[in-house]
Design a protein around this nucleic acid. Structure first.
Length: 879
RNA sequence: GAGGCUUUAGCUCAGCUGGUUCAGAGCGCUUGCUUGACAGGCAAGAGGUCAGCAGUUCAAAUCUGCUAAGCCUCACCA
């Protein structure tokens, strides 16, 4: 088959992907082989492919393809996450565009819209993954809200409730006024925010609700919550405020009388030492309120607007209200002064709205026992975190985690399986029927229509923490005692999980918890945490900055293999990734190199009768050894998840060693043929190289592998075994290093003296070499090896311990050459001196291990022989 | 505020248990090549006081301490 000069991925990639699908090569069923399983970190259904996905899924695909070629039964389960807040927001926004407000439609109607949205857009990201070459078992595609997966979530809820681990209670939660829902502590991001510290005067009451002329001043960042104040607190040890003991003060603007209380929480040296206590709108104040039995006055509602209880500015948005309250305070003479101030403010991870601490009734899952066991799984090494620096972070979190708020005031998600009786009591059951039964035990008169299901849904992570279990056996979650189905029994625990450190707690830790409870085993053995993809200036990729390229554009421009290579090249393990398009170019260039190397070999004609030259035989021997050595290195890198190092090792083997050295040796001169033995070896090498690099570059390798030779129906490189390392002759490899050094040296002389490559030169070697390699040297450097030390002017250099001289009558400026040699001689002498100083050091000889001393002695001997050779050359030159 | 990580060539990073001629790789850069596979290429080069200081040791890029810069995680002094 004739190959085009340039590799064109667009003509190749879709063809092979379709063919792989057609043959169901990605599909896995349990069998006698060892399983190798990965579950995809399910992207949001709202998602579109970004560079983070590219990194993550390329790594996943490399691992899964490698395992497949290693003979394992590789199964990569794909799917998507319903992402309740993100998706609900999208749908609300879409409805808004259609002039529909969520408030105006029923839950059922809203969910119809949401499902329609999911059907239309939800598959997009999975289709995009195919462009990357991801070899997922698409037959196993799952969605966290598939009916059976939702059922798994419900059963899990019921399980934990009946175990007494889930409870319902009034707590101070993180309220997202934009998403109109509570969010968990983990979904709050704190950002330093410029704000103001308002110093406000509270006048002391005369006892009958009238102000006296005495006042105290509190510092607050949230004047709009003043109307919700339940007390003012000072530290009991603060002598400045002893006079306030037992007094009451008046809340500015509303004139309500509140007590001055004393609490240790208040710092004497912050602000004025007086704290306004607002139990409804601050977690600490809430705690103080509990201690002092203070009333709870809510002035901000779930939309972030002031309530009736605020008395002033009712109905105004909280941010506007802050400005207006300040104005009112000033007008009323209560504002002392304002300072600039910066402090962390919590924002909702999903909507970026400022979090409003708010009291509400929510469902919680107790974390105590769960987090203890999940911590143990990592501490004991049953789950390995890579890089392991994350173990600290993980431990710290697991030791400090608070109960998980799992209810969300949303519609998109699994509705909480709790049903309320008219009297407020409730039952928790997996469906309405069972709930009715249970309710009748409480009250036999209850009818189905009397029951009302809790309107809230569960946190998305409450479904994705079951993912590694429920994708295989949705019946299992909630029922640890039940026997696993054959898929779950075979594929669980999965092997490796590749994901970002940003969801270590959200997802990874919680999967470990769920695995422990329902499977009594970890969900995966290794967690490879990738870095965050940044642009080359180190900025996070974001839509706002517009610094994130569309991966599909890159694939269209450079090909998927190039994008995969580019991504891996800049992603050393555990570090953030500084993405630069030039890396993708490098990937594309590599494709071109591979392509052309086959064009060369495929064009050779073979002379069946021709004997193999010595140079060819040595080259084959060398490359065979080098291949083995590199395979060993690559395997070692893979085992440590050093994927980019593995890639680089293959890259150099392919480009430098195979193309630039090996092929240059065996390449027949124009018009001549190659012998059979060398050709066969060359083709075998190429085949092994393709297989080695296939996990990283699936498309071009399939194309070339199919082009190399006629293949049987349905035969693919995907299932060819990973090449194995053979015996390694290290002496021979070292000998080749000398040969290479000599070739480079001669080329250097040519470049320096402008001697054309076609002009054959003489070369004399002095020192230990591998004679088998001499023909290689002669061919590559275009030299004739000389038996004797050349007479007359020569240019010389040293490789290792071998002195190389190239006689160059007429071309050598002997004084220049002499100068160079003498400088080299001086360098060698000072090196020798250093080594001898070491060897002369009694401490060194006494303490250092044998091997090190032997090494130093060898260095000494080598230096001596080099010095001798140099001196000889200098002597002959100065004649 | 508390923990952790990082600092090696212009850039991105290797360098494992201190000792192998240890100061490396890729990219970039410089110079020369219309060389019968490939200019997306070939060949030859230049580039670093291993962040700084002190210590341990026969021996330090590697271990310890301090300093500086950058990053991450956790933590709502109103």
């Amino acid at each position: 088959m004739e190959l085009s000069i340039k590799y064109d991925p667009s003509k190749v990639e879709d063809k092979w992907y379709a063919w792989w699908l057609e043959n169901r090569f990605f599909h896995s069923e349990p069998d006698g082989r060892e399983p190798y399983t990965i579950v995809i970190p399910p992207p949001n259904v709202t998602g579109i492919l970004h560079m983070g996905h590219v990194l993550n899924n390329t790594l996943n695909d490399v691992l899964i393809r490698k395992a497949r070629m290693d003979g394992k039964n590789a199964c990569w389960v794909p799917g998507t996450d319903h992402a309740s807040i993100a998706t609900e927001n999208k749908v609300v926004a879409k409805l808004k565009g259609m002039g529909i407000s969520k408030e105006d439609i029923s839950r059922e109607e809203f969910l119809r819209h949401a499902w329609a949205w999911k059907e239309e857009h939800g598959n997009k990201i999975l289709l995009q993954l195919r462009k990357l070459g991801a070899s997922c078992d698409w037959d196993r595609t799952r969605f966290t809200m598939d009916p059976d997966l939702s059922k798994a979530v419900t059963e899990t809820f019921v399980y934990f409730y009946k175990k007494g681990l889930i409870y319902r209670g009034v707590r101070m939660v993180n309220w997202d006024p934009e998403g109109h829902t509570a969010v968990s502590d983990e979904e709050v991001v704190y950002k330093d925010t410029k704000r103001h510290l308002y110093y406000v005067r509270y006048f002391v009451s005369d006892g009958e609700g009238h102000p006296t002329d005495k006042y105290l001043t509190v510092a607050t960042t949230r004047p709009e919550t003043i109307m919700a104040d339940a007390a003012v607190s000072v530290n009991p040890n603060d002598e400045r405020y002893l006079w306030l003991r037992g007094k009451k003060v008046l809340v500015p603007l509303v004139g309500r009388e509140i007590p001055v209380i004393e609490d240790d929480y208040v710092s004497i040296d912050f602000g004025t030492g007086c704290l306004k206590v607002t139990p409804a709108h601050d977690p600490h104040d809430y705690e103080i309120g509990l201690r002092h039995n203070l009333p709870i006055i809510s002035v901000i509602d779930d939309r972030g607007k002031l309530t009736e209880e605020a008395v002033v500015l009712v109905g105004e948005d909280r941010f506007q209200a802050q400005k207006d309250v300040v104005g009112l305070l000033e007008a009323a003479g209560n504002l002392d002064h304002i300072e600039d101030y910066s402090s962390p403010v919590g924002y909702s991870e999903r909507t970026n709205a400022a979090i409003e601490p708010m009291l509400s009734t929510q469902w919680f899952l107790k974390m105590g026992e769960l987090s203890k066991n999940a911590l143990e799984a990592v501490e004991s090494g049953n789950v390995k975190l890579i890089p392991d620096k994350y173990r600290n972070t993980y431990r710290h979190w697991m030791e400090n985690v608070r109960d998980w708020c799992i209810s969300r005031q949303l519609w998109w998600g699994q509705q909480i399986p709790a049903w309320y009786l008219p009297d407020g009591r409730f039952v928790v059951e997996s469906d309405a029927e069972k709930a009715l039964e249970a309710a009748r035990e409480l009250d036999p008169a209850i009818k189905a229509e009397d029951l009302r299901q809790d309107p809230d849904v569960l946190d998305t992570w409450f479904s994705s923490w079951l993912w590694p279990i429920s994708v295989f056996d949705p019946e299992k979650p909630g029922h640890p005692e039940r026997e696993s189905n054959p898929d779950l029994a075979y594929y669980y625990p999965t092997n490796d999980l590749v994901t970002g450190p940003d969801i270590l707690f959200f997802w990874v830790a919680r999967m470990i918890m769920a695995g422990d409870v329902f499977m009594s085993d970890v969900p995966f053995r290794n967690v490879y945490l990738t870095g965050i993809v940044r642009d080359k200036l180190g900025r996070k990729m974001s839509k706002q900055l517009g610094n994130s390229p569309d991966p599909l554009d890159l694939v269209a421009k450079y090909g998927a293999d190039a994008v995969r290579i580019g991504m891996l090249l800049c992603s050393s393990a555990g570090n953030d990734i500084f993405y630069d398009e030039s890396m993708v170019e490098q990937g594309r260039n590599f494709c071109g190199k591979i392509w052309n190397s086959w064009r060369l070999v495929s064009g050779w004609s073979v002379d069946e009768g021709a004997p193999q030259s010595e140079a060819c035989r040595s080259a084959v021997k060398w490359f065979d050894n080098l291949l083995s050595r590199t395979i060993a290195e690559v395997e070692d890198n893979y085992s440590k998840f050093r994927i980019s190092d593995a890639l680089m090792a293959i890259y150099r083997l392919f480009w430098d060693s195979y193309c630039s050295w090996y092929l240059e040796i065996v390449k027949p001169v124009w018009g001549e043929s190659i012998d059979r033995a060398t050709l066969d070896a060359t083709v075998t090498f190429f085949d092994k190289l393709l297989r080695l690099i296939h996990p990283v570059m699936p498309f071009i390798t399939e194309e070339l592998w199919q082009a190399m030779a006629p293949r049987k129906e349905g035969e693919t490189i995907m299932f060819q075994p990973t090449p194995k390392a053979g015996e390694i002759d290290r002496k021979f490899l070292a000998g080749f290093d000398i040969t290479q050094g000599a070739v480079i040296g001669v080329r250097g002389i040519r470049a320096q003296k402008q001697i054309p490559p076609k002009q054959t030169l003489g070369l004399h070697l002095e020192g230990k070499t591998v004679p088998e390699l001499n023909p290689v040297l002669e061919k590559l450097a275009n030299v004739e090896l000389l038996e004797k030390v050349p007479e007359g002017p020569a240019s010389s250099f040293i490789v290792g311990t071998v002195q190389c001289s190239v006689p160059l009558s007429g071309l050598v400026d002997s004084s220049e050459e002499l100068g160079r040699l003498e400088a080299e001689l001086a360098r060698q002498k000072s090196f020798l001196e250093g080594v001898r100083r070491k060897l002369g050091n009694a401490g060194f000889v006494a303490h250092a291990p044998e091997a090190v001393i032997a090494g130093e002695r060898k260095k000494e001997a080598d230096a001596l022989s080099r010095i001798e050779a140099l001196e000889k050359t200098i002597a002959s030159l100065s004649k």
